[in-house]
Write a protein that binds this DNA or RNA. Structure first.
Lengths: 127, 127
DNA sequence: ACTCTATTGATAACGAATCTCATTACCGCT
DNA sequence: AGCGGTAATGAGATTCGTTATCAATAGAGT
């Protein structure tokens, strides 16, 4: 049975409050700085849960996993500022179709895809 | 000045011979098993060089970097079997355009993008 | 309240990747 | 062909993100 703990809520809230993608370690540090006594392992576990249930999206950059609270039950991609992490959710049905077709054309089944666009957001571009 | 060593050649050859994406460690093990006395650090260095010059593409999966010899000077994406690693190179100008436009629409500059499709290749699908 | 057990958290363990630095060997030069 | 400087190598140590361990804690149904 799954239990509700204040730790899980804290991680969920912290994720929701952050602008873009954040690392597990950064989240943990932020929570500790905010006075919480949450453990690092718990942050990792909570994030894995959120990613598993679809309440958070994750991506890998420089060998570390970054997470972000996302609108659930809605497949989308991300436009991410590689400087400050600010993220915009992107809907791209055309890309979904394309990925599916490409896989089918080569006889590949169970297609998944990773599609992310990185760049510098307007704020970071102007500096 | 850059020197040519048999180690670099060995890594390049081993990469070229492998069907799909391979990890640095797997390549190192393969080379050692083949009788080569190459060091792990050297494999990492050679792969980084190849990726830097555009002779190899890389992607991150499960927190480790995978590499593959690729046709140089040709931007493309990959269709990868998540079971055996077999890879097909994909040209997708439509996706390039889409990524560029999406970035521009939101005022993002210097757009890069990561687009990879995973699935099970015909051989792995049938088992 | 009481029990049962999922969850927590400090720390150890793990693994990929990088760094260190003494040794090696590539390559331009004579 | 021989020499010299110097980029490259490699074994091991180190860093860093993530996961496993396990005793202690605290949800939740009764």
């Amino acid at each position: 049975m799954k239990r509700n703990t204040w730790q899980r809520e804290a991680v969920r809230d912290a994720l929701t409050e952050s602008e873009g993608f954040v690392s597990a370690q950064a989240l943990h540090t932020a929570l500790r700085d905010a006075g919480s006594a949450i453990g690092l392992a718990t942050v990792y576990r909570a994030l894995a849960d959120l990613a598993g249930t679809g309440d958070a999206d994750s991506l890998q950059q420089d060998g570390e996993s970054l997470f972000r609270a996302c609108t659930p039950d809605s497949h989308h991609h991300h436009l991410i500022c590689r400087n400050c992490g600010t993220t915009v959710e992107i809907k791209a049905d055309a890309v979904e179709e394309w990925a599916k077709n490409v896989a089918a054309e080569h006889g590949f089944t169970e297609p998944h895809h990773i599609v992310d666009v990185f760049g510098l957001c307007p704020a970071c571009s102007s500096t």
